[in-house]
Amino acid sequence: MIEGITILPGLDKAGSKERFEKLTLIAGETVSIVGPTGSGKTALISDIELLAQGDTSTKRRILINGEVPAEEVRYNPALKPIAMITQNTKCFTDLSTEEFLHIHAKARKIVDKKIILDTIELANKFTGEKINKETRVTVLSGGQTRSLLIADAILIGAAPVILLDEIENAGIFKQEVIDIIQSTSKIIIFVTHDPVIALLTKKRIIMENGAVKKVLCQNEFETKAAENLLELDKRVGFIREELRAGNEITKELISVSFA
């Protein structure tokens, strides 16, 4: 059981110690990590994913339930409590989607074969372009790859901690992803440039120059703002899908969307 993960400070890009004592994220909490490109967002979630013990470039340390995780937890995928979706939108493994998920399920010591088709079905909720079980993962589009890896993280990774690196960039239905993920008691960490995702999370970690600069908690006003933005986002999304489908944007369409 993971009740919380704790981040202990490391060094910023100039080599100075980060100015927080410790940062604990608890089960059921959604967290976003924001900051300019190169500010250290991806490095922070990589530290969490690797359960760093002062042995990454940032020198941070990560505790699980307040304790240093056992070696075995760090190195055995079957025991690893963390699933991460990176910014990669390409798979290099020359296997069909079914074979790929099969081997991953084996690595995670899952015996129920049903999970493979369930994962593909879930992935297809996140993407407009359907993935077949025979499709080789090397030819999946960026959006399909992301969708598959997110579904894989939720069902096969089945980890209590999920790290998502800029999911907004991949042409997937992010609202569906957020809805499914938020209904769990997992710790979900989004690295994001998306204002909707940033405002919908309970905690917001702000990065600068490789270090955690500050941590903000969601307030009532921001929750309202997020709801408005979400509405706007859906309308933009509607126009986007029309454009992607090759349709023309008419006056009527605009008045429906932005009335």
Binding site: P77, A83, M84, I85, T93, H104, L149, D152
Partner: peptide
């Protein structure tokens, strides 16, 4: 590469050599 792909490769290594000490 993605974490899932890393785990798939590691599983393949373990199939060849179950007792190897693995690190990434």
């Amino acid at each position: 590469i993605s974490q899932a792909e890393r785990e798939v490769l590691i599983q393949k290594i373990k199939d060849v050599h179950p007792n190897v000490i693995l690190m990434e």
